[in-house]
Design a protein around this nucleic acid. Sequence first.
RNA 1: GAUAAGGUGGCAGAGUGGUCAAAUGCAACGGAUUGCAAAUUCGUAAAAUCGUGAGUUCGAAUCUCAUCCUUAUCUCCA
Length: 494
Amino acid sequence: MKNHNLTIYNSLSRQKEKFESLHEGFAGMYVCGPTVYNDVHLGNCRTFISFDVIYRYLTYLGYTVRYVRNITDVGHLLDDGEDRMSKGARLDNLEPMEVAQKYTLGFHQILQLFNTLPPSIEPRATGHIIEQIEMVKNILDNGYAYIMNGSVYFDTVKFAEVTGEYGKLSGRIIEELLSETRDNLKNQDEKHHPSDFAIWMKANEEHIMRWPSPWSVGFPGWHLECSAMSTKYLGKQFDIHGGGNDLKFPHHENEIAQNLGACNIHPAKYWVHTNMLLMNGRKMSKSDGNTISPYELFTGESVHVSKGYSPMVVRFFMLQSHYRSTNDLTDDALQAAEKGYKRLMEAYKSLSDLLSDHNNPTELDSRISDIINGAYADMDDDFNTPRAIARLFELVTIINSLKEGQIRISEISDTGIKTLKSAFETIIFEIFGLKEENSTNDGVVDGLMQLIIELRQIARTNKEWTTADKIRDGLNELQIQIKDGKDGSSWSFS
RNA sequence: GAUAAGGUGGCAGAGUGGUCAAAUGCAACGGAUUGCAAAUUCGUAAAAUCGUGAGUUCGAAUCUCAUCCUUAUCUCCA
């Protein structure tokens, strides 16, 4: 275990709290995953990238982390009461499980491109029907639910009266919830109160996804899976529960109610919510066209971007804002992120070329250590990646100055260089989860390019500028950029 | 309407009582490099008085109130 002073903003208390895990050396984290009836939304990616960094940082600190992220493949109700999964199935003319499989695979592919680590356990709601039924039983036994025509509803009024816990996370006031009317909601008449919610639903004739239960052949309520699966894999109480801001109500509020209702204990010590990703200052919305898919973003096939941006550039862009702030995705901002990201990676590469001629501690050495410690302190402060990145760029300036001679190489010791290198590796690759891209691994291309560069060099030596420029411009059109430096030319994909 | 989070340079985005005329990246400007560019790089240089108005305080971007705007949730959403 590393010494640290990690604080996390807890949505439940609305303040930063010192992180102390329930079990020394271990950390349990549950994050609400996607509903797999559609392609992943870029906003989802932001959330999962944020939690990926949290997962990575906890691991870096030395915790043995169990990271559970579910796949919702049943239970979401549409306005008309139809299950989301079966709707997708009907439209695509597929089995519900086929739909789930298809979009689960797509989801994994995209997240892999973003270099997120897979969770320790990725449970599916349909694989935990038994656990969910058990939980319904427990809630019934504790008197916080009632049965109506084969469906089971959570009694929010009674729960609120007995525990006083309902609405705390989202700041809802129970009286106001009770006075709300929702005439268009199906089964409204079955509920005692509008704020009550289904934990088991009786399936009607057309409903494809159905399981037997003590109450009816039916399916579990949407909020129930997370309560059941977090309890199963992390215990009745665990450290961190995460998800997007938009899940606070009703999903997380109801989850807390279910856990308390079934187990008499608050499920999570720290509730962590990520903020929304915007595009051009507005929310992403399919209906008004203000949306872009991860794939479109990578290829540039969208009116919203001037070109494609690689997954690592997008990841870096997202890390440049704090997870609790909204993040505005714009073409300008992505271009800026791309340049910054490249500069950061180039500086890392330059480190290999730096050689000090001595090993006596210097003033610069200690300045470097201070900056690095600052970056870790930023991460300790509620995972402040933008500030940590800012510090890395202070190091970038130092590295480049050493390389270019603005700072004499004797001003840094051998140890200082090693410290820089290991800090870059740990922070950029291990914690931020960035990786190098664009290596061709293609001997033929490399060989050809080497040859072309040599030919152009001959032309340049002979001052045949027309030929040299033709090669340069022609390659440029093929998205290959020639970079003329002091020690010859190099190339890269632009 | 209610609830929650916000409005900081040209753009993105840190900062939440004094060390802030305010980090960092990009852009812009100046220099280095170049056959010219691009790319790269340096800059004790330039750029925001922190939505608006009022208040608390010796002192506010940071606290309070009002007001305008944005986003989220209240119905499925990361």
